[in-house]
């Protein structure tokens, strides 16, 4: 087993990946290859398996079958040290709550380099904060996302959109070669969402990194050169966004009654499926969370 990334291999390769939670099959034999530098949007209805795919790529769920190769390395079989070396090159951004709310924006950004810290440097950072090199990188990263003046503010005191920009700044520090985004903009308003996404794409452009983004919003996914769609844990679409015609979308998002029988896809009004958003109750904020 190689200890480092294998040159010339795809950024991500899934081979017959199956994941289930009890009786629920979340991914059913999913195979997918993402080349290096590619930008891929993953769409699908709630429960289609988008988040499970994300969690499988970060080794947050176990596979029943199949392999996941990230830059040629089978991430499920790596030992602790090799896994962390591989994960150091994988950046993540979540819908919300990916940051530590009690820590300042600056420290959260500095944690983009956490995997590089030796045990002694970890304790030093814990006691005294990041060193001068990291600090200046943190400041310029925050400057790029327009939040340099909030460096000392607790993340809990920032708005949802600002928090997502801090998360992007953390990626700027980490400089990963693969970025996984799990609905990065579905908890913020559309304008902020597009700004966050633009910053993310700029970052990808600069570093030639690969981006795999789960998106609720089909119109945002249309900005990606390649879109894949999941339904019931299987691939139902893979291609350029031009091919995402209304009838295809209707199949992807066809809802089903509670007994599990599929709804006639043709009967679903495609225009109602364009911009599904997270319901309001999912957008709680840390600032309001009382103990």
């Amino acid at each position: 087993m190689g200890e480092t990334a294998v040159e010339g291999t795809p950024a991500v390769a899934l081979e017959g990946v199956e994941v289930s939670f009890g009786a629920v099959r979340a991914l059913t034999g999913l195979s997918l290859t993402v080349e290096r530098g590619e930008r891929l949007a993953v769409i699908g209805a709630s429960g289609a398996g988008k988040s499970t795919l994300f969690n499988a790529l970060t080794r947050a769920v176990a596979l029943d079958r199949g392999r996941i190769l990230v830059e040629g390395q089978d991430i499920m079989s790596l030992g602790d040290r090799a896994l962390r070396a591989a994960q150091r090159r994988i950046g993540v951004i979540y819908q919300a709550y990916g940051l530590v709310p009690q820590l300042s924006a600056g420290i959260n950004v500095a944690l983009g380099e956490v995997a590089d810290l030796s045990p002694a440097a970890t304790l030093r950072t814990f006691a005294r904060g990041p060193g001068p090199g990291t600090s200046s990188r943190v400041l310029s990263a925050l400057e790029r996302v327009g939040l340099a003046d909030r460096v000392a503010d607790r993340v809990a005191d920032l708005s949802g959109g600002q928090q997502q920009r801090v998360a992007v700044a953390r990626l700027l520090l980490q400089r990963p070669s693969l970025i996984l985004a799990d609905e990065p903009v579905s908890a913020v308003d559309p304008v902020t969402g597009e700004r966050v996404l633009r910053e993310l794409l700029n970052l990808v452009d600069e570093d030639g990194a690969t981006l795999v983004a789960n998106l609720h919003d089909v119109s945002l996914a249309r900005g990606f050169p390649r879109v894949v769609a999941l339904r019931h844990g299987a691939l139902v679409f893979d291609g350029p966004p031009e091919n995402l015609k209304d009838d295809v979308l209707a199949t992807i998002y066809a809802s089903e009654p509670l007994d599990g029988a599929p709804v006639d896809a043709a009967a679903v009004d495609p225009s109602s499926l364009r911009r599904p958003r997270a319901p309001v109750h999912e957008r709680e904020s840390y600032g309001l969370r009382a103990r």
């Binding site: 970060t58 995997a115 970890t122």
Partner: peptide, 15 residues
Amino acid sequence: RPVEALRAIGASRIQ
């Protein structure tokens, strides 16, 4: 979620 985010980018147990 914040702990999981740190794990996903390679933070050790103590980190």
